[in-house]
Design a binder for these strands. Sequence first.
DNA 1: TTGAAAGCGCTAACAC
DNA 2: GTGTTAGCGCTTTCAA
Lengths: 335, 335
Amino acid sequence: MSTIKDVSKLAGVSPATVSRVINNANGVSAKTKEKVKQAIAELDFYPNAQARALVKQSTNTIGVVMSELSDPFFAIMARSIEITAEKYNANVLISTGSLNEEKERQAINSLQAQRCKAMVVNSKILSDEELIDFAHKIPGFVLINKYIEAIQERCIWLDNQQGGFNMAQYILEMGHSNVLVLSTKNKVYDASRRLAGIQSAFTQAHKILPANHIIYTSPDPQGGEKAIEQALANGIKFTAVLAYNDAVAVGAVAKLTEKGLSVPENVSVIGFDDVLLANYCSPPLTTVKYPIAVMSQKATELALTLSKNEGKVSQTINTYKYKPIIIKRSSVSWG
Amino acid sequence: MSTIKDVSKLAGVSPATVSRVINNANGVSAKTKEKVKQAIAELDFYPNAQARALVKQSTNTIGVVMSELSDPFFAIMARSIEITAEKYNANVLISTGSLNEEKERQAINSLQAQRCKAMVVNSKILSDEELIDFAHKIPGFVLINKYIEAIQERCIWLDNQQGGFNMAQYILEMGHSNVLVLSTKNKVYDASRRLAGIQSAFTQAHKILPANHIIYTSPDPQGGEKAIEQALANGIKFTAVLAYNDAVAVGAVAKLTEKGLSVPENVSVIGFDDVLLANYCSPPLTTVKYPIAVMSQKATELALTLSKNEGKVSQTINTYKYKPIIIKRSSVSWG
DNA sequence: TTGAAAGCGCTAACAC
DNA sequence: GTGTTAGCGCTTTCAA
């Protein structure tokens, strides 16, 4: 790979001049500019991004931490961040953390090593203290899908508790009182918020949600299938299922159908997120809309802005809480 | 952000020694190592990845070019690459190109600027010549989902034509002869291969596929819906739909159902890819399996290997063609 | 309008 | 074992 020196030699100018040309600086005569451009083309030269970053002390790269690219929810998030970043001419570096504390930390560290000043982090598992710490060290550190009061001006979040509350309230209104809740690994932040919301709706309605009606399972269709299998095997009685997300819901529907229980006639099911799948599965899924695309865009813009201002937070706006909304389709019937 | 010099000062050693410690080089006494480590912790120091890359002349980063992260197909691909890269301690840099020639080229260029020596590229639209050119310049350049003879030892591909052929052969065997084909933008590589396969199956069966039975639409559910709407509006008669991918198929099913045509009783539908959606939509979709996860893993390993060998291709293996297989579910009936 | 020179943060010879 | 030095490819003063 050729360097700026090679180009300068071929064009018969100094490296500085070549630098001026590739950076569109003015103060270069049209003639030399032309010569340089030709040399660049001839040598197929691309300025080394690392060298540039090193001297400029900035990369214009936004780092993204999330757990699982292949999950449609995160895929939408990634896409939205990317589109937004492009608008601001920023590059995107994605680092995945999975549901493991050490990995999540590493993901952030590797982004730090890349000297990303802007970061959008979807932490599922790190402690609040550690995240607050990061926020204080990294100017453009933004948390998405999570709320921590101490750094609320850097949190873009959905009110998950409200979402859980909505699901439960709706299903109770529909006349179901034997409800099965499919949650996920209890250390996962949003899962616990949603569960809290569900429980508070039960309490408010003076109903009881027995502990054995809560099953913790993996957040994918297989998880949904397994959970239903298990509930049925344990003889748990239920006429409704509240799933952690749409993928789990869809797996639950599949297993219920397989066992001769039709949805929504025998069992009602509610998902969460409203990903593509929810609209096209059968029956179309009643679910809670998670406006992740809008939120990701906001998070990206905030991260970029903060990193420019060296972390100085704007005075006017200081909270970014989004509201979940029930999308009623066909997977719920009167109980 | 602190530098190696700051650390060396605080620890009372030379920068070289610090470098030795962070690189786990031997020849450092336990005592100094301890001092240095303490200083590192105290200053919260992370070695600057760009500076490192610059002097080492290598980044251990694999670049990925693809069009659309939010498509589940690509999401699986990204995930598989990531998992594989991690095994080899390589970082992943994703650059998206969309279905636009200039953007695709830019995506590759920006990866070049980052000095990625290994690259997995899913090109939808660049010309063969240009791709061959890149392959000659970039040691670890690997093409995924595309076959170009001149660089076949760097191509990981599915036999799309065979896949198209299989779909069509199966639907013809099932007794359908009024078939609607939902393809996508005709410049897209795999779409054209699949279409060619479909056509050759028709020819071989001495059947005719009229030109107005081929509709070009966007590769997502909305595209499927629109295409069906259009076909119906134009009074085209069909009892079977061959879709470009599962997302299109699922959209088609939704629109057909909406119009009072049930699947598979009135119309049979076949998808392509076998993404998660295919198994959980209604009815479960008969589709063509695209083993993208395995292929992505292979591509990653190949790219990494080639980049280590400076592009020298191993002698033993020299072709990576994968076979599509029909997965029979419930969206096809006898015609 | 152009060039020389210093330096970004790190590693790798080569001394000692 | 440890330090000194040069240099990776680029940008940016400062001079000319």
